[in-house]
């Protein structure tokens, strides 16, 4: 029983940064902006968060700085693709590389510095319930934040007028513009939210998951988050489930190894990508499914004058 609990707890922790980054990207994509620079924004968030926490000793200030760094990078991206109408794919890739280099440079003085990270804290009373306590009420605070953000995103996109407008912009910016909605401003907001979430995901990695900074700390998790959005066919609940699934793969594989079970670990590492390709194949065969969920104008720039 104990090790089952350990697996679940570790899975949630491993899935949380993926869920955060992917939820942010989901909102950006729903507005029609494809930002491939998630990895770069996560790294920026991770290094900014760690640097702030290591310098001031305040972990929550670190989290805030991580979010701000993610926003800053996504702002550069938004200026390029929304205002200047640059190609989103190329700009996103450039952002991923830029974020990687920038974070490595800025992080030089902090490489393998040691801080006390954000620790898991069992909630009073609830955390003491056998099995359920460690299973549901003993995570670090950011895990609960990620769940709240998941609820907020799902509610916002499908239960609010503003969410409807955002989705409308992603479906058909022309129509939204005709009706009088500020397409560019909405896309800015969605992109910046995506940046904030990626920054938060990065800060989670450097402050809670592995409280340290090293170059390339995210180790490809930003790319997995991108794949996750497609895998989840742009649905927040599936994003969350997918994040825990992809996060759980590594954890399960390690437990299997510890018990002496032979597992093809390289294959399991490739699983998120294989699953995503599988989903892509399935949804592109069924045009109706694509139309239901994939934002129709994803990746296309919009000129107000056209």
């Amino acid at each position: 029983m104990d090790f089952l609990v350990a697996i679940v707890v570790a899975t949630v922790a491993a899935g949380t940064p993926l869920a955060l980054a992917a939820l942010g990207e989901l909102v950006a994509e729903k507005s029609g902006v494809l930002n491939l620079g998630v990895e770069g924004m996560m790294l920026a968030g991770a290094v900014a968060g760690f640097a702030a926490a290591a310098t001031t000793g305040n972990l929550w200030l670190g989290v805030a700085c991580g979010v701000v760094a993610g926003i800053a990078l996504s702002f550069v991206f938004a200026v390029a693709v929304v205002t200047l109408q640059a190609n989103q794919v190329a700009t996103g890739l450039a952002l991923a590389i830029f974020g990687g280099g920038l974070s490595a440079f800025a992080g030089q003085p902090f490489v393998s510095r040691s801080i006390d990270g954000i620790r898991a804290a069992p909630l009073p009373l609830l955390g003491e319930i056998p099995v359920l306590g460690p299973l549901a009420f003993s995570f670090d605070p950011l895990v609960y934040v990620s769940l709240a953000l998941f609820g907020a995103v799902a509610w916002f996109l499908w239960r609010t007028r503003a969410g409807l407008v955002l989705r409308a912009v992603g479906e058909s910016p022309e129509v939204a513009h005709e009706v009088g909605y500020p397409v560019a401003r909405i896309r800015y907001a969605a992109t910046l939210f995506g940046g904030a979430m990626a920054g938060l995901a990065g800060a989670y990695l450097s402050l809670a998951y592995t409280p340290l900074w090293v170059e390339g700390l995210t180790a490809g998790r930003g790319w997995i988050a991108l794949a996750l959005v497609v895998f989840a066919t742009w649905r927040p609940a599936r994003v969350l489930a997918g994040a825990y699934l992809f996060g759980g793969v590594t954890v399960l594989q390690f437990h299997a190894q510890g018990f002496g079970v032979e597992v093809p670990s390289q294959l399991l590492s490739a699983l998120p990508y294989i699953a995503t390709i599988g989903v892509l194949v399935i949804i592109s065969r069924d045009a109706a499914m694509v139309r239901l969920n994939a934002p129709a104008s994803l990746g296309k720039p919009f000129h107000a004058g056209d």
Binding site: D2, F3, A6, I7, A10, A14, L205, Y209, T210, L212, V214, L217, A219, R221, T250, V251, F254, H255, Q257, G258
Partner: peptide, 13 residues
């Protein structure tokens, strides 16, 4: 570091 930590946690559990 993420994987190393996960592996360490697994061994401890």
């Amino acid at each position: 570091p993420g994987k190393e930590r996960e592996a360490a946690m697994t061994l401890i559990s």
